[in-house]
Design a protein around this nucleic acid. Structure first.
Lengths: 225, 225
DNA sequence: ACGCGTGGTGTATCCATTACACTATGCCGT
DNA sequence: ACGGCATAGTGTAATGGATACACCACGCGT
């Protein structure tokens, strides 16, 4: 085991990981990417993907690296959630984890099992397995944050392709909030913020009236009102 | 320098500190406790008090320990703010800091200079000195959080004694938000949430009509609506 | 007793949110 | 080509919360 040359105190210190909750929408459900642990502790249990923070990378870079490794994705919405540091949260020792959550558009996505994971899968948040460590708590916190944030910001855009129908956007809200939304009020409200614009494209798939496609004026997340 | 016996990887790892922003209200101003650094780097600059996380304590316990050491206070409102982990944020090496903020009632408070601090003082947030490290950013984030949170929760209670006049509560809002509040609307709104109750005490200090004293029904923070 | 300073109260207006139902349009099957 | 199906798209009335606003109440100090 290497000596910790850069430590600034003479004492043992906690290790630091980042865990990343990657959410997407598939089959009209909110899904989260989990990995099946291939080693003890919690061997065989599902867990939030994560890994140690390297010395030269920022926390956010570490989170992006994880997403790249697990799901092959760059350039997704990513936000720090909370830092979990209970001394007992990991039976291997003192590990503090900085949790992030990411949102990726519901398109083609592949999940790669990483070194210490036997398998990786999307789970609907309505059909979650028992999770390893304190990961159920972390996931619950992420869902709270996402449900809250969608009410006053444009985060939903990160779950959609660049262009989308208003009914697609409405569906994202319904899936995340878990309740139906009134179509007319929803459209009125969304358009009133002046953060959406029509594109020159029309969606004519499907045996019904074609829909206008919209996009968000800004790629970055905006706040309502 | 001690060998890091409990490390879980063969690589060097970041150190972890907690930094704690302690806010109070004094002289009708929102104040934050800062310490003057007695050692390099940033010797002589003012900084947010903080320290290393010990192996056996949770992050919150570490934050409470800091508050105890710096200000001799227990049992204050404390909430995790954000974790700052830029590899360049500290010239001494890789230090990740988990920032907390605490709110203490505006009463008698003493600040003690700790080992590596030459001095400790309250600063009005309107008259801040240049801060060490990335502490200006951390403080700005804390202020944003506090200003946001006071709008939809009872956090203001943590800045007041157990019993207070409605005008005291109003003043806390005005100081934190930095703008005047309409007295009648403020009272109507606060009372409408049914989170306050009158006490049997009347404040008769001052050469004017005495004021009813109120308290929050719950000690814990509640959310409006 | 009167004036000062803060405590305490109500009403009318405005604006945002809600509830709610029908017509429009393209596709597909006959 | 037409009729039915499925989703797109649209407006108005009622409600309720937020805002703006001014005067009397009460103890104290002089």
């Amino acid at each position: 085991m290497a000596k910790a040359k850069t430590q600034l105190t003479d004492y043992d210190q906690p290790s630091v990981t980042v865990d990343v909750l990657v959410f997407t929408i598939l089959e009209d459900q909110l899904k989260v990417a989990l990995i099946k642990r291939g080693v003890a502790p919690y061997q065989g249990r599902w867990a939030i993907p994560g890994g140690f923070v390297q010395m030269e990378e920022s926390l956010e870079d570490a989170a992006r690296r994880e997403i790249q490794e697990e799901a092959g994705l760059n350039n997704v919405f990513l936000e720090q959630l909370y830092t979990f540091g209970d001394p007992k949260r990991d039976p291997r020792g003192r590990i503090i984890t900085v949790a992030y959550y990411a949102l990726v558009p519901g398109e083609k996505l592949t999940l790669a099992a990483s070194t210490d994971a036997a398998e990786a899968r999307w789970f609907s948040i309505n059909e979650l397995p028992k999770l390893a460590f304190d990961h159920a708590k972390i996931l619950a916190e992420a869902l709270r944050r996402l449900r809250s944030k969608i009410e006053y910001s444009t985060v939903a855009s990160a779950l959609l392709p660049e262009q989308f129908r208003l009914s697609d956007l409405q569906k994202v809200y319904e899936i995340i909030l878990g309740e139906d939304v009134d179509k007319r009020n929803f459209r009125k409200r969304m358009l009133s913020f002046d953060l959406l614009e029509t594109t020159s494209h029309i969606d004519s798939s499907g045996p019904h009236r074609p829909a206008q496609l919209y996009r968000f004026k800004q790629k970055e997340i905006q706040f309502f009102k």
